[in-house]
Amino acid sequence: MTTATEDPAISAVRAVERLRLAEARLSRRRQSECGPSENARAAMRLILERCDQGQTLTPTEIAQALGISTASVTGMLDRLHAGGLVFFMANPADRRSKFVLPFDRGEDPDAIDPVTARIREFASDLPADAAGQIATFLDRVREVVDAECD
């Protein structure tokens, strides 16, 4: 994709743009063709992370973390519950709220998002110094994306 005379910085910018376009295409395919939505996958990752940390999570916290409405989270959690991925437990400190917990902690997180598993595989082949530089670069790109329209 790069030419011998192309500036490496321009190559990086073009690679990020190709990545963003591929992510957008994947998101559209997932919405209509293959399994849980991006938000449902993100919610499951969050639920599993919090469970692994010994923490609880409410639907409202999921909505806040994902930047979506609580109504959207309710429907999404109902689908995840129907699919056997999560269950609900009453919050003993506040009977009006509930905690969202994963049904099966034996579930392989890579099965929830196989793309992440492949990326992890590729990253393990990077030299440590290059991996650190790439991570820093991508974090800076993410900050720009996250700040857009704030």
Rank of each mutant, 00 (worst) to 15 (best):
A65G: 04
E143K: 00
A71G: 13
S27T: 14
M44N: 02
R25A: 15
A24K: 09
A4L: 07
S97I: 02
A71P: 00
L80K: 03
T136C: 10
Q53Y: 04
T3D: 06
E17L: 10
K98W: 09
T70A: 10
A12P: 00
I10Q: 03
D7Y: 01
S37F: 01
L101C: 14
A9D: 06
L80Y: 01
Q31N: 14
R29Y: 10
V16T: 10
N91T: 09
L138F: 09
R20Q: 15
L138K: 03
T136F: 08
I119C: 07
F137E: 09
A90C: 08
G84E: 15
A128Y: 13
A40K: 03
N39W: 04
A12W: 04
V144N: 00
V13N: 03
V141D: 02
F122T: 15
A42T: 02
D108A: 13
V73L: 11
C51K: 00
D94Y: 11
R25C: 13
D7P: 01
P8F: 07
T3H: 04
G67T: 08
S72R: 12
A131E: 09
Q64C: 05
R50E: 03
L80P: 01
V144R: 02
D125N: 13
V141A: 07
R14K: 07
E23S: 13
V141F: 07
A93E: 14
S124K: 13
G84C: 15
A42Q: 05
Q31L: 13
D52K: 04
R50T: 02
L19G: 15
E49M: 03
A24R: 14
E17V: 12
V73P: 03
T60I: 14
S37H: 01
G132D: 09
Q53P: 01
I68Y: 00
R118M: 06
D52M: 03
T74L: 11
A4P: 06
T56A: 09
T58N: 09
F122R: 15
V144I: 10
D52G: 07
R140N: 05
S69C: 09
H81G: 11
T3F: 06
G132W: 02
A90R: 12
R50Y: 02
L138C: 11
C149E: 08
A24W: 05
S32P: 01
D129Y: 08
T2H: 08
L101E: 07
E33Y: 08
A90H: 10
L126H: 06
V141E: 04
F137Y: 13
S72D: 10
P36D: 06
G106M: 11
A22G: 12
T2C: 03
L85K: 08
A63W: 02
A65I: 00
I47Y: 00
